[in-house]
Design a protein around this nucleic acid. Structure first.
Lengths: 367, 367
DNA sequence: ATTAGCACTCTTGCTTCAAGAGTGCTAATA
DNA sequence: TATTAGCACTCTTGAAGCAAGAGTGCTAAT
């Protein structure tokens, strides 16, 4: 009973602080929240909560504000993420439905998410490493330069220029291109690189083999490029709008460090389908010490689909680093530690769901 | 003589203010700059300059700061943009030279420019409307969905999904694709749309013609899409670093309004090769009232190349909206009105030059 | 046309002060 | 033992007052 009320107090403090952003005192709590005890009692509880590290007071004679630990408890208690209402979900689907390409869909998604949460939103494009090749095109830019365009099953398009020392006849390139596409389709990028390399060795390619090797190296590089999944960020202006409680510079710096953000969000969205939350120092990122990150993976590789097609395609080597159910990309939102966690988590989840559908759906495409 | 010294004083005030960011008084001026007159004389000049609208004093008893008009005069006087030193230019070329694709080059460019100027940098990808088609690929995503990938001579890649109501045999699509590429190559996008549309009518395409028409519409839409040239922005964090003299929110808002920025920069970079400067209200953009924009076009369509190839290719209709020497995209930097104009203009110019070379160079490609 | 000198104006930083909010502790109560 | 009333104490916040400093405008002299 006692323990229980203490936590109710904690919850009340946090809710109030999230609303008002001001240190909350015992009397406010006693008045506004129906705790049925006097302010003095609450004072005792708050003192205890402070001892336990859930609350802190900015100065001797002010109300209390939650600590990182406080928020963590609060978020953990928030176990069941409230689903958005059907209407809200429909609105999202509606807004995103007439996207015209994957990029377009992702751009809309960040903007939408940022708008819903009123915070910074981040969406990554599907990681190339975790996608399958749908087509590899080789477009001559000049006699000695080729543009390799790789289209993945997630709908993303990556490009890379290759320059050669020799001039190659275009029909031979076409042939090679056809051959590559025949062999590589539906392999992961790293597997495809292997295919191409093998092709370079086996076939009677003569002057082409050099080119093929270069191409293989390129594809491999793409697969391993950590920041391969393009990052979309929106809503940085929202940051400038909140009264500058503190210095925003480090936060902005962090946002420009794409690699850092990428790693952070990826870690956070490991277990699929669920939204992850990192609060303050949990982000292990200098600029985010007073921010929280809410993120979810999306685009889990469809399990049955994979295994079905694994057995079908004998050409594909086993060293594919697919992890079943590992998300292919992520979507998230970054805000102050005193953000509205419930709302943010719901929104992130909803957008993630939508994007997952969208990607899995490439049998029907974007309408 | 008198007129001349007044303007020297103006120049000195502006230079000092750009350095220190603090209102500059007559005594400082007399001491630090070798004007050879007393502070009282300078006071008179400053009073005159204030009457003429070049200077203003924030409060009765403070130094003077430049007005918009002051900056304008200053910038106009700065006629000859200082070229960067050979070493600096080499450093730029060096940093950008191992770009691996157009996107990559553009991303590096913004980051670099932002780093050099210490301000926000913006680079647009080549506008599709002003580029020529190098290749149009049609990749089936499913039986009823096609991904159209358009590759332009500037090296940019645009994509768009098309969904159909009927299933089309893939070999027929290949044929159509070949035909389209045969006819459209080297046309502008809008011309290509026309080609495809004509193809749809003339050929015995049967069930394909519907698809072709859809494709034509898509290509046309891409050509007309104002924001088609993707926008790259870097260095927003720099904004947060300068002491917040004033509210940054509107500035951030403006930066997120891609369409607005796009239009502004485009207008500013009309006359090619030269950098344009818009100061404060000259930008006609609410959020930029105390910012200045320095921008330059890049990637002028190479004049002779165009005309040569205009006569050669009889298939291309005349309604191409090429304007000789009109830039294809732009690069610029945004900073406070008290920025270091000379340095910023030099940097913008250097990067623009480099990018122009890069694009024109698609006969040699990225090294 | 320039300059020295001087009175005047404003900002800026500091200190003081009173009001208000909130706490911690003690002693009384159920 | 858990709760509560009461009270002294602490600390922030805002206003007000004040002295120092910077810079100007004006006048009179060169």
């Amino acid at each position: 009973m006692k323990q229980s009320r203490r936590m109710l107090v904690l919850r009340a403090v946090i809710e109030d602080y999230i609303r008002t952003q001001e240190p909350v005192g015992s009397s406010t709590l006693a008045r506004e929240y129906g705790l049925g005890v006097s302010s003095a009692t609450i004072r005792n509880d708050m003192a205890a909560l402070e001892d336990e590290g859930y609350l802190i007071q900015p100065h001797t004679s002010a109300g209390r504000i939650p600590t990182e630990r406080g928020y963590r408890y609060f978020v953990d208690e928030l176990a069941s993420v409230v689903r958005l209402s059907a209407a809200q979900r429909r609105a999202i689907a509606n807004f995103l439905s007439d996207s015209v390409s994957l990029q377009d869909a992702l751009e809309r998604s960040v903007r939408l998410l940022s708008h819903i949460t009123g915070q910074v939103a981040i969406v990554s494009g599907p990681s190339l490493a975790k996608s399958r090749v749908r087509r590899i095109e080789i477009v001559p830019l000049s006699t000695t330069t080729m543009l390799a365009v790789i289209i993945t099953d997630a709908g993303s398009v990556a490009q890379h220029t290759l320059s050669l020392d020799v001039t190659l006849p275009s029909d031979r390139i076409m042939d090679l291109s056809d051959e590559i596409n025949r062999v590589c389709i539906n392999s992961s990028l790293s597997a495809a690189a292997g295919c191409i390399r093998r092709l370079a060795a086996v076939q009677d390619l003569r002057e082409m083999s050099n080119f093929a090797i270069k191409l293989a190296r390129t594809v491999e590089a793409m697969a391993n490029d950590e920041r391969s999944g393009q990052l979309y960020i929106a809503g940085t202006s929202q940051l400038a709008h909140q009264q500058p409680t503190e210095d925003l510079a480090p936060l902005f710096d962090a946002l420009e460090e794409q690699a850092v953000i990428m790693r952070l969000m990826n870690n956070l969205s490991q277990q699929n389908g669920e939204v992850g939350v990192a609060i303050g120092s949990e982000t292990k990122t200098p600029g985010l010490m007073s921010s929280a990150v809410v993120s979810s993976g999306y685009g889990h590789s469809m399990v049955d689909q994979i295994s079905a097609d694994r057995s079908a395609d004998a050409d594909r080597p086993d060293n594919d680093n697919y992890r079943q159910d590992a998300p292919v990309a992520f979507v998230g939102s970054i805000g102050p530690t005193h953000m509205d966690y419930a709302a943010t988590m719901s929104a992130v989840r909803a957008v993630a769901r939508y994007l997952t559908e969208l990607i899995a759906q490439d049998d029907t495409g974007w309408s």
